[in-house]
Simulated assay, not measured.
Amino acid sequence: MPDVSVVIGVHAHPDRLLHTLESLRQQQGDLRWECLIVANGGFQPDQACTSLLQADRRFRVLESDKPGLTHALALGCGQAQSPLIARLDVGDAMAPARLQRQWRIFAQHPDLVLATSDVEICGPAWEPLRTDSQPAATGKPMRVDTVPAEKGIAIDIPHHASVTFRRDAYEAVGGYRFHFYFGQDWDLWYRLASQGTFVHLPEVLTRVRLFSDGLSSRHWREQRLIARLSLACHQARCTGRPETSLLQQAASILPRPPSRLNLPWDGRRAEGAYFIAEALRRQGDRRCHHYFGEALRYGFWKPRIWVRAAHSLALL
C-alpha cells in the first residue's frame, strides 16, 4: 500500500511528461508512492517515457475515454490506492522534499485535509517568472471556512499542482465535478473546506512551467468565468440555496472546437507568449525577446505586443 498517490492527467507533449516523472523519482526519504498517469486524446508516450514507465512499476498508465482534465483526474483519484492524493501537471516538477514534507504534516495532524506550499512559476525553459506565496503563512493547519461566504475561504491555493489532499475527504464531498471542464480545482477546494483544516507550507515545493500553448495560457478567460461560478456555488451552499442553474452555466463553458483552417496565426497562443515575454522583460531578462517574437508571429495585429516588444529593445 503506497503512502501517497500522485495523479497526473496528460493528452500531449511526452517530452514535458518525462521531466515531471523524473522529479518524482528524485523524491527524498523512504516514502512509498505510486503515480497514476491518466491519458486521453490518443496520447502516446515517446521512447524515453516508455522506457521509464516500463522500468519503474510505481507508474501506472490509465486510459480515459472522455475528453478534458476533469474526467482524467476523477478517474485517477478513483483508482488511487493510498490515503493521500497529490496533484502534479505535465511539464511541472516536485522539489525533492515535497512528498515527504506534505506526508509528514498529514501524519501529525489527523484533522488536516489539504496541504499546499509556495510555488515557483517559470517559463518553458525554466526561466523564473515569479514565486506565488502567502506572506502570512505559518505552516500550521487552520480552518479556512471562517470568512463570509462571499469572500470564499481564508487561504489562497497558489496552484492546482501544489496540492495534496486526503482521499476520504475528497470522496466525502463528491470529488471533482464534471460540470467544470475548466477550473475544477477551486470548486473542490471550497467543498473540502468543510471537512477539516488546510495548511500552507512556506517553502517552494513545486515548480510550475507556463507554456504559450498551455491550458492556462489559452483558456484564462474561461477559467476566470469558472472561478466566479465556483464562488457563487460556494455562496449558494452556505446560504442553503440550490446550485442547479450555476452548475448548468459552468457546464456550458467548454473549449471552442478547433478551426478547420490551418491558419498561421493564433491569438490565444500569442497572448500566452506575451505573458511570458512581459514577465521576463520586467525582470530585465533578455530571454524575453524570444517570446515577444513568438507573440508577434501568432498575434501580429495586437498593438500592445508591438509596444512592449519595442520597450524590450532597451535590454539590448
Rank of each mutant, 00 (worst) to 15 (best):
P45R: 03
L53R: 11
R218G: 04
V113H: 07
G175S: 08
S23I: 05
A279R: 15
E22A: 07
S5M: 10
R16D: 04
R268W: 10
T70M: 06
P124C: 02
R58E: 04
Q79D: 05
H13M: 13
L69Q: 14
V163C: 14
E34F: 01
S133P: 00
L21K: 07
F59S: 08
N262S: 12
P2D: 04
E34G: 10
A273D: 10
F300T: 09
H19D: 13
T206S: 07
Y181C: 08
R143V: 03
D132L: 14
I37L: 15
C122Y: 05
V61T: 15
F292G: 00
R228V: 07
L201V: 13
A295I: 05
R177H: 15
F198D: 03
E271R: 15
H19C: 07
S194I: 00
P303W: 12
Q100N: 09
E127H: 03
L313A: 11
R25E: 14
A39M: 10
L88W: 09
F292H: 02
R32S: 15
L201K: 03
A232K: 09
G174K: 10
Q79L: 01
V208E: 13
P242A: 09
T164F: 02
G68T: 03
I155L: 14
S117G: 08
Y291I: 04
I305P: 04
L188T: 06
V204I: 15
T131P: 04
P67R: 12
R58C: 06
Y298V: 05
A137E: 04
T206K: 00
G196I: 08
P67D: 12
D145G: 09
T20P: 12
G78R: 09
R25Y: 01
R98K: 14
L53W: 08
A97Q: 15
S64L: 00
R241L: 14
A80K: 04
V163D: 00
H234M: 10
A39S: 14
R297Q: 15
R191Q: 13
C233G: 06
E278P: 00
R57F: 03
C77D: 02
K302N: 13
C238W: 01
G76L: 11
S212Q: 14
P158N: 05
Q79S: 13
W220R: 13
F300H: 15
R260N: 07
R209K: 14
F106E: 07
R281S: 11
T146M: 06
P83D: 08
C35Y: 01
